[in-house]
């Protein structure tokens, strides 16, 4: 009986060690590539939401959230003459089916958006996932955040802070508007409070 137990332990240990070794090797080889992919995607999204940007700087901001302090990355974009053109940051929140994650570009006046790019979403194909399309995304260019992003149904928006919701996907449209409004508010509060430090970092 004792021998049997020892055998089981030895085999399990040896097998687990071999597999563990294989995994460690594979992960070590792949980790730099995975990180590079993530950065490339982030970079593409930043340039997408900050039109005209030639380079950007990263600020690590500590922002109080619902669940304690959060470290958020805020990107400051500059055009090719070195002129500051705006901020970019990620926003995320619950959509219709899963978390919607977006990169948002903010103009230096803290009021108007440069644009929006969806990073992750699992909305209904054919309805909610139209947030990926230019027709919907273009509405965020120059959109005003104050007092909040609002949506109208089945007609052209009249106010500078309104978008037209996607027909049949009001929940998704509202979610996008609310997520951007909510997260932007916190980020703008931080930026305004730390304006001096941020500019000094240049």
């Amino acid at each position: 009986m004792k021998e049997k137990t020892a055998g089981m332990l030895i085999v399990l240990t040896v097998v687990a060690t071999i597999i563990g070794g294989v995994l460690a090797t594979v992960y070590k080889t792949a980790a730099p590539r995975i990180e590079a992919n993530r950065l490339a995607e982030e970079k593409r999204a930043i340039f997408e939401v900050l039109p005209g940007a030639a380079r950007y700087e990263t600020i690590e901001a500590v922002i109080p959230g619902d669940k304690g302090d959060e470290t958020v990355k805020i990107f400051r974009g500059f055009d090719d003459t070195g002129q500051f053109i705006g901020y970019a940051y990620t926003t995320a929140g619950p959509g219709f089916q899963a978390i919607i994650k977006m990169m948002v570009g903010l103009q230096p006046d803290y009021l108007k958006l440069h644009g929006m790019q969806v990073l992750e979403q699992l909305e209904t194909p054919g309805l909610g996932n139209k947030i990926l399309y230019d027709d919907f995304r273009d509405q965020f260019k120059g959109l005003e955040l104050h007092p909040k992003i609002d949506y109208v149904k089945n007609k052209k928006p009249e106010k500078p802070n309104e978008i037209q919701s996607i027909a049949g996907a009001t929940i998704t449209s509202k979610a996008v508007a609310d997520i951007i409004t909510e997260d932007s508010r916190r980020i703008i509060a931080y930026l305004k409070a730390h304006e001096g430090e941020v500019a000094e970092a240049e």
């Binding site: 594979v26 792949a30 995975i34 992919n37 995607e41």
Partner: peptide, 8 residues
């Protein structure tokens, strides 16, 4: 891991 690295 392979897919994450090669086909994100």
């Amino acid at each position: 891991i392979f897919l994450k690295a090669m086909f994100p």
